[in-house]
């Protein structure tokens, strides 16, 4: 018995080694540095200066707002569209295979490529602008809507929606397929019309899985650096972009603030997931 337990921990040892050495270690040193605590270079008095400094910065709050806005908006839009797309694909008779392929085709495509594609499509001299010109709607590129590096982060949201709709959708599709048609059939013979079937049968059945995967998307879009870096505007930048900017600042005194900001990003992302887990468990229990 004792031996068996030892064996299990030995099997886990390499994974745990990496997790503790790099992941936990990275977080730990990040936290220490953000508290100005680094005995190696003689900093032995931890303090909250970096955090206080951040909190007194208007740019930090504007960035936080921007990051939350992007994460919440793109997750919400992706979720709604993913449900719609999954419902559509479930019954798409002639082209179901093709669509399912396109859906899963999108999944392994790197975000970088998605961002570049969005740029090519939606920049003011991009493909969409050219089509708009073809219809005679605009004269010059400047007449086209500003959709990339714009103040409302539309380019960023478009990229996230492009990538996350298939991600969430494939989960919804799998749930829909495992549910089958019978729940709907039963509710239909009980007098439920199309709207009622959606509202009282399909939606409650797919909600748990949809929310769990969407909350992962939420945490991801909150902590992602590259997409806002490529498609966002300079001010206010999102928190991850700001953190990297502070980190690469020639002024090394900004490093603790960069650390503090990255720790805050991690904490908020983790809190989103934890809050969801806590809420969903409470709802299950109160049932």
């Amino acid at each position: 018995m004792q031996f068996e337990r030892l064996k299990i921990w030995l099997m886990l040892a390499p994974a745990l080694l990496v997790l503790f050495a790099v992941f936990i270690g990275g977080l730990g040193f990040g936290i220490a540095r953000s508290l100005n605590y680094m005995p190696i270079i003689g900093l032995t008095q931890p303090n909250f200066d970096a955090y206080i400094g951040l909190f007194s910065l208007t740019e930090f709050w504007r960035s936080l707002g921007m990051t939350l806005y992007i994460a919440l908006t793109s997750t919400a839009i992706s979720m709604v569209l993913a449900i719609g797309a999954a419902l559509l694909l479930r019954r798409a008779f002639p082209s179901k295979r093709l669509m399912t392929f396109l859906f899963s085709f999108n999944l392994p495509i790197p975000h970088i490529v998605g961002a570049i594609g969005i740029m090519f499509l939606f920049a003011q001299s991009g493909f969409m602008a050219r089509i708009a010109h073809g219809f005679g709607w605009i004269e010059r590129p400047m007449d086209f809507l500003v959709l990339v590096n714009d103040p409302y982060a539309i380019g960023i949201i478009l990229e996230y929606v492009w990538k996350e709709v298939p991600f969430i959708g494939i989960v919804v599709l799998a749930v829909l397929q495992s549910i089958g048609d019978d729940y709907e059939a039963v509710s239909q013979t009980l007098g439920a019309g199309p709207l009622q079937r959606f509202r009282f049968v399909i939606l409650p059945l797919i909600t748990p899985a949809t929310l769990s995967v969407s909350v992962l998307v939420l945490a991801f879009t909150f902590g992602e650096f590259l997409i806002p870096y490529l498609l966002g505007q300079t001010y206010p930048a999102t928190l991850p972009v700001l953190a990297v900017r502070l980190f690469t600042d020639p002024d090394l005194n900004k490093r603790p603030e960069a650390m503090a900001m990255s720790i805050l990003i991690a904490v908020i992302a983790a809190l989103m997931v934890l809050a969801y887990m806590w809420l969903s468990r409470r709802i299950v229990r109160s049932d």
Binding site: A185, V186, Q188, T189, L190, G191, A192, G193
Partner: peptide, 9 residues
Amino acid sequence: RAERRGAVM
């Protein structure tokens, strides 16, 4: 339609 038929399954 099934929802108005009154044939319950």
